[in-house]
Computed example of a mutant assay.
Amino acid sequence: MIRVLLADDEPMVRAGVRSILATDVGIEVVAEAGDGRQAVELAMKHHPDVALLDIRMPRLDGLSAAAELRAAMPEVRAVMLTTFDEPEYVARALAEGAAGFLLKAADPRELLIGVHAVAGGAAYLSPRIAHQVIAELAGGRLTRQGEARRHVESLTPREREVLALVGRGLSNQDIGRELFLSEGTVKAHVSAILLRLEVANRVQAAIIAYEAGLVER
């Protein structure tokens, strides 16, 4: 069962998201918050697997809440749920360690897919903005092709294989099945990859995989 914390300052939005999540028997909403500060406090109390955070909330915005959760409870996977898809929001969300970015206007199935993906250890970006993120961040803000290739050259052959699959959005479990490795071994490889690439999360690692040519666009 995937335990989810839902945070949005609009009760009707929370009700809509909750009703979508309720259609999946593998997801349980364990707490709801009306602002970012309350979201952090409830996360400390309920220990959810995934925190769905609206970006614009009173007291503490969702991006700041994600940063606090990353520092205090790194096991909680933060997913930004918002109506805004401007590059600056996405860039800051990734910098704060968010594992996913979903648009409220997207197909409701994306919400369920995204929650399952990040709970399984993968990263998830709404398809509507995935190419934009790669172009905007990888094109200049995060890394350039030459630098990406240089970073990738520092990896072992096995780590490059794992990175390519991270770039395709696979979870640790899926990568293990693909490469005939235990999930624990994959997790160790991913941790080493993030350290060597000097990135904060799997999304940033995936962008480097794209820029280095490990994943076809």
Score class of each variant (00 low, 15 high):
136 E>D: 15
126 S>V: 00
61 D>T: 03
58 P>I: 04
216 E>A: 08
95 A>L: 10
146 G>A: 14
210 Y>K: 04
74 P>W: 02
120 G>I: 00
73 M>W: 08
156 T>Q: 13
105 A>R: 10
41 E>W: 00
154 S>Y: 01
104 K>I: 09
47 H>S: 13
50 V>A: 14
147 E>C: 00
52 L>Y: 02
172 N>F: 07
102 L>P: 11
139 G>E: 09
108 P>I: 09
11 P>D: 12
169 G>V: 09
77 R>W: 02
161 E>K: 14
77 R>D: 05
74 P>G: 04
199 V>K: 12
76 V>M: 03
173 Q>D: 11
46 H>F: 06
210 Y>V: 07
117 A>W: 10
131 H>L: 14
86 E>N: 13
105 A>D: 14
213 G>S: 12
43 A>H: 06
124 Y>Q: 00
128 R>C: 00
215 V>L: 02
7 A>T: 11
95 A>D: 15
157 P>C: 14
147 E>R: 07
147 E>S: 04
50 V>I: 09
140 G>I: 02
198 E>Q: 15
53 L>C: 00
153 E>A: 15
68 E>I: 06
88 E>W: 05
42 L>M: 10
200 A>D: 10
210 Y>L: 02
148 A>S: 13
209 A>C: 08
120 G>P: 03
93 A>Y: 01
146 G>V: 10
111 L>K: 12
145 Q>M: 06
167 G>N: 05
12 M>F: 08
177 R>W: 01
116 H>W: 14
18 R>L: 01
163 L>N: 11
176 G>P: 09
53 L>R: 02
69 L>H: 06
139 G>T: 06
163 L>P: 11
27 I>V: 15
49 D>P: 04
209 A>N: 11
181 L>H: 04
65 A>F: 09
67 A>D: 09
207 I>P: 05
134 I>S: 13
17 V>G: 05
